[in-house]
Amino acid sequence: MRLQQATRLALYSVLVLARDPTRQLAVAEIADGYDISIHHLAKVLRTLGRAGLVEAVRGVGGGYRFTGNAKRVTVFDVISLFEDVANPAPDDHDVLTPAARALGLILAEIDEHAVATFRSVSISTMLKIIERTSQRATADRSKGSEAQDSLDLS
């Protein structure tokens, strides 16, 4: 499954902001590191704002902050603001041949699994996964450098 760019930006933004709901970040700060258009991101943030997931804070030092409940809001909730994953559009070229129906069944099975997965992962769980994967990456890097050190010494 491939998510549209706006959907991915929305998820990245929610995750960056939910990490510390007391902190507000400017659009440029959120965009930092993702190589994305600030204009596009601002539009995405407005949609998130209308859904009550983020709030715009005006004035000097203003920006956006996360206002949702990270334990209750799921990845599916964010995705469904931008695309209809629960009811994917049929392929334009589909005609109801037996082969198309069979393919439709298989694709529907994949979609059902995807939706169940998105619905089951809260923003809080995503933050835990991010933390775990970062720790693993750090540990792997440290193991790699230890191995390199021992090679250098031998």
């Binding site: 059902e112 699994h113 169940a116 619905r119 089951s120 809260s122 769980t125």
Partner: peptide, 18 residues
């Protein structure tokens, strides 16, 4: 069951993955 969102969320919050 994959429509048991509550329990799926609980297990995932504990770190379980597919």
């Amino acid at each position: 069951a994959r429509d048991n969102h509550l329990m799926l969320s609980f297990f995932r919050s504990q770190g379980m993955m597919a």
